[in-house]
């Protein structure tokens, strides 16, 4: 038997499952996005071409959530990258207990996003939350507040809660990047009299750049698709302050039951995510070559 035929047989089960649940639905999603398809008005389904798309592109309900998504994603990626870079630099040092600390990083990582949202809902409770208690004890606030009740604090806390479970993986990946940097480069830099900050800027950062780019791209893609934590923590509120595209798609489709409009805005989100991924890839990769 030829190797091609073997490959076909071996990969058939997996490929069939992926095709049935990803490729076919993707095709159907494209189809739906070109139709008027509202479950509340059955029997009125009809082909409308790109009308759904042009409707969205002239609708505030697309542009405002898009802006919110950008704000959220940029803040979240910044927080994740800065903190995980700091933690990975710490874990790159040799000290007793390092392995334990690295293992415990998996605790937040293993927590499902919905449970994470519940955890932060409890921490941020307006009457009894720990965050309120700590801020109050330290005199940062004079009375308990509803942190999720107004902008900008709701966005800040959403970003913190989201980042908390995303930092561990980013840290492990950056750590693996740090560990590929040979130690003797640092030693010769020390001999040359380079300070710690200089060594970070001239050795660590440039050599970490490939891994850093990958982590930034992945985190950006994830942050753009954010949904679970919104569902539990803010439901897009208060007053649409955290209404990201993922939440907009959900309400449009599964609350208003407008599957045509929902599919087309979902396609737009997919397109933007993909475009960003490519853009970042090209941009960051070029930077590496220079």
């Amino acid at each position: 038997m030829s190797q091609g035929a073997l490959a076909l047989i071996f990969s058939a089960p997996a490929v069939l499952i992926i095709a049935a649940t990803i490729l076919v639905p993707f095709g159907m999603a494209v189809f739906l996005s070109l139709h008027n398809w509202n479950l509340k008005r059955p029997g009125r389904e009809r082909f409308v071409g790109l009308e759904n798309y042009s409707d969205w592109l002239s609708d505030r309900d697309f542009w405002v959530p898009l802006q919110t998504t950008f704000t959220f994603a940029i803040l979240a990626v910044a927080v994740i990258i800065i903190i995980s870079l700091l933690i990975s630099l710490l874990l790159n040092e040799r000290f007793p207990g390092r392995g334990v600390l690295r293992a415990l990083l998996l605790v937040p990582w293993a927590i499902p996003s919905v449970v994470n949202a519940l955890l932060w809902k409890w921490l941020l409770n307006p009457q009894y939350g720990l965050v309120n208690a700590i801020f109050f004890e330290f005199g940062i606030i004079t009375e308990y507040q509803n942190m999720l009740g107004s902008m900008p604090s709701v966005m800040i806390w959403l970003v913190i809660a989201y980042s908390w479970i995303h930092i561990p993986l980013a840290t492990l990946l950056l750590l693996s990047g740090l560990q590929t940097i040979p130690g003797d480069i640092y030693e010769s830099a020390i001999v040359d009299g380079a300070g710690i900050w200089q060594r970070f800027l001239t050795i660590t950062l440039p050599l970490l750049r490939p891994m850093l780019s990958i982590v930034i791209i992945f985190e950006m893609i994830f942050a753009f698709k954010v949904f679970d934590i919104i569902f539990v923590l803010t439901a897009g509120g208060p007053a649409d302050a955290t209404n990201v595209l993922g939440w907009q798609i959900y309400t449009e489709t599964f609350r208003k039951l407008d599957f045509g409009a929902g599919s087309s805005i979902a396609m737009l989100l997919g397109g933007i995510t993909l475009a960003l991924a490519i853009l970042f890839y090209v941009f960051l990769d070029k930077g590496v070559e220079q």
Partner: peptide, 28 residues
């Protein structure tokens, strides 16, 4: 194995993860 379309298959498998679950959820 060496077979035609190996790269394509590998790429398709990876790319399938780029599609947001929300857009697949609707038809599913």
């Amino acid at each position: 194995l060496r077979f035609r379309g190996r790269q394509v298959l590998l790429f398709a498998i990876l790319a399938s993860r780029l599609i947001p679950a929300l857009s697949l959820a609707i038809p599913i």
